[in-house]
Simulated assay, not measured.
Amino acid sequence: MIIDNDTTSKYRCPVEYTLEVIGGKWKSLILWCLAQGEVKRYGEIKRNINGITHKMLSQQLKDLESQGLIHREQYNQVPPKVEYWLTEKGKTLVPILEAMCQWGSEYM
């Protein structure tokens, strides 16, 4: 299904865009982790996602923040404290993640 008549558009359909935003091995897991509670610190996210490296988690968090899906709040204190949570835009993805969870539970 092509909905954009602009042939220079980067995306051929909304599914392609959605997959770019939440696709890959880690983004959906990070979003799911944040959807389970209000505010999470970096270490909490890392502990909840088996196998993710510090570099990859940092990179994916920055990408999700730049997409406007999560908010990052840094507190200037010692030791440093950084918290993450879903933005309103990020919360709109929760039903998609819940559907993925339900599908996985049924067919895993």
Rank of each mutant, 00 (worst) to 15 (best):
M1F: 10
M56C: 08
T92N: 11
K91T: 06
Q59T: 07
G104R: 05
E20D: 15
L31I: 09
E44D: 10
A35Q: 02
V78C: 03
I2Q: 14
G23R: 04
L69D: 08
Q36V: 00
K27F: 02
N76W: 14
M108S: 01
R72T: 15
I2Y: 14
I49W: 08
H71W: 08
S28P: 02
V39G: 01
T87S: 10
G24A: 04
K81N: 14
G37A: 08
C33V: 02
Q77H: 12
T92S: 09
D63A: 03
D63Q: 13
L69A: 11
T87H: 11
I96F: 13
L57F: 12
I52D: 12
L97K: 05
W85Y: 13
N48I: 00
Q77I: 15
N50L: 02
Y11W: 15
E73G: 06
W103R: 12
C13I: 05
K55H: 14
E88L: 07
Y42P: 07
K81F: 15
Y84W: 12
E106D: 14
K27W: 08
T92H: 04
T8I: 06
R12Q: 11
E44N: 02
Q59A: 01
A99K: 05
K62M: 12
S66Q: 15
C13W: 15
D4R: 06
Y75N: 10
K25M: 09
N5M: 03
I49A: 00
K62N: 15
C101Y: 15
E20P: 07
E83M: 03
K10N: 00
L19K: 13
S9R: 03
E73N: 07
V78F: 13
T18G: 04
K25E: 10
R12A: 01
E98H: 05
R47S: 08
I70G: 01
Q36G: 14
W85E: 14
D6H: 12
L69R: 08
T8F: 01
W85R: 14
W85P: 00
L69Y: 05
P14H: 05
I45R: 04
L19V: 01
D6S: 00
A99W: 15
Y11L: 00
W32A: 02
P79H: 13
L34W: 11
Q60S: 02
A35P: 01
K25V: 12
R72E: 15
S9P: 02
T7M: 00
P95H: 06
E73T: 11
E88R: 06
L29E: 14
R72V: 03
Y11N: 03
E38N: 11
R41S: 08
L57N: 11
V94T: 08
V94C: 03
H71E: 13
R47P: 00
A35V: 01
V39W: 12
L61S: 03
H54L: 07
T7E: 09
I45A: 01
W103V: 04
L86M: 02
V78Q: 12
T18C: 10
